[in-house]
Computed example of a mutant assay.
Amino acid sequence: MTTKKPLFELGQIVATPGVLEAIPNQIALLVLLSRHVRGNWGCVCADDAAANDAAVTEGDRILSAFPINPNKVCADHGDNCVWIITEADRSVTTFLLPDEY
Results as ranks from 00 to 15, higher is better:
S91I: 09
A28M: 04
E21H: 15
N52Y: 00
W83A: 00
D89P: 08
D99F: 13
L33P: 01
L7H: 12
T57I: 13
P17F: 03
D89A: 11
E100G: 04
A46Q: 14
A51R: 14
V37P: 06
F66D: 02
Q12L: 15
F66H: 08
I68R: 10
T57C: 08
Q12C: 10
A54W: 12
W83Y: 06
D60G: 15
C45K: 13
R35T: 11
G39Y: 00
C74F: 00
I13R: 11
V44E: 01
T3N: 04
V31P: 13
G78T: 06
K4V: 05
S64L: 03
N80V: 04
A54I: 07
K5P: 02
D89N: 14
K72S: 04
R35F: 07
L7I: 00
L33V: 11
H77V: 03
D53G: 13
A54L: 12
T93E: 07
D53L: 11
R90H: 06
T2F: 00
V37I: 09
V82Y: 00
V82K: 04
G42S: 08
R35W: 15
V44T: 08
V14H: 14
R35P: 11
L97V: 08
P17L: 03
P98C: 01
V19Y: 05
N80H: 12
V19F: 07
I27W: 14
V19Q: 08
A55F: 01
H77I: 03
V44W: 01
Q26V: 09
T86G: 00
F8R: 09
D99T: 00
V44L: 02
A46L: 10
M1A: 12
